[in-house]
């Protein structure tokens, strides 16, 4: 299977590559549109700040390419947030794949949310073999609002969408590559989609 991790100069993408390697799958890093288009599965990662990440996507033309992909695409963390309509971080327009808007947690809670939280209201094959209230590892200051595209929710300040799906596009706020065996199960499930 041909797995491509979109490499647009952001974040710790080696961890995702290593996570697939632990599952016995070699994933390649690429920013080349032809290679990404030809992949069986695409991972769209992201760590850092939204507006600068979006600038880097635009620089390489990937902002146009990603919404047109037809194979399963999994956005992780900031990747998921960039797939949304809009994010308050740096007042950034997203790729518009998901209609959710991304907002900042208020100071009523500690920001960033850092650590393990439960995922609930699981709705997709992405969560096969994963149970309601299993734990995933999260680090984020911004969250996607709960909406009808949510396939998992978590509670922090309020109930928010910790995973989204629309057609062939999936997005997860948590880091499956860092979420122990539950995260590994999710990555396995993604490979089977």
């Amino acid at each position: 299977m041909n797995i491509v991790i979109v490499d647009y100069g952001t974040g710790n993408i080696k961890s995702i590559q290593f996570a697939f390697k632990r599952l016995g799958v070699e994933a390649i890093l690429s920013s080349n549109p032809e290679i990404i288009k030809a992949a069986d599965k695409v991972i769209f990662p992201g760590v850092g700040e939204a507006s600068s990440a979006m600038k880097m996507l635009k620089k390489s033309g990937l902002d146009k390419l990603i919404p047109t992909l037809e194979q399963p695409v999994l956005g992780i963390c900031l990747g998921m947030q960039l797939m949304c309509n809009y994010t308050e971080e740096g007042n950034t327009k997203g790729l518009g794949i998901f209609k959710a808007n991304v907002k900042r947690f208020s100071n009523a809670v500690k920001v960033p949310q850092m650590g393990w939280n439960t995922i609930k209201n699981l709705k997709s094959d992405l969560f096969k073999g994963i149970h309601e209230s299993d734990y995933m590892y999260l680090v984020h200051s911004y969250y996607a609002e709960n909406c009808d595209e949510a396939i998992a929710t978590s509670d922090y300040e309020m109930q928010y969408a910790s995973a989204l799906a629309k057609d062939n596009f999936y997005g997860v706020q948590f880091h499956p590559e860092k979420s122990s065996i539950v995260g590994e199960q999710l990555l396995k499930n993604f490979l089977k989609l």
Binding site: K14, S15, R22, V139, K178, S179, G183
Partner: peptide, 8 residues
């Protein structure tokens, strides 16, 4: 460690 460990 990054290669082999699945927690942060």
């Amino acid at each position: 460690v990054a290669e082999q460990v699945n927690i942060p």
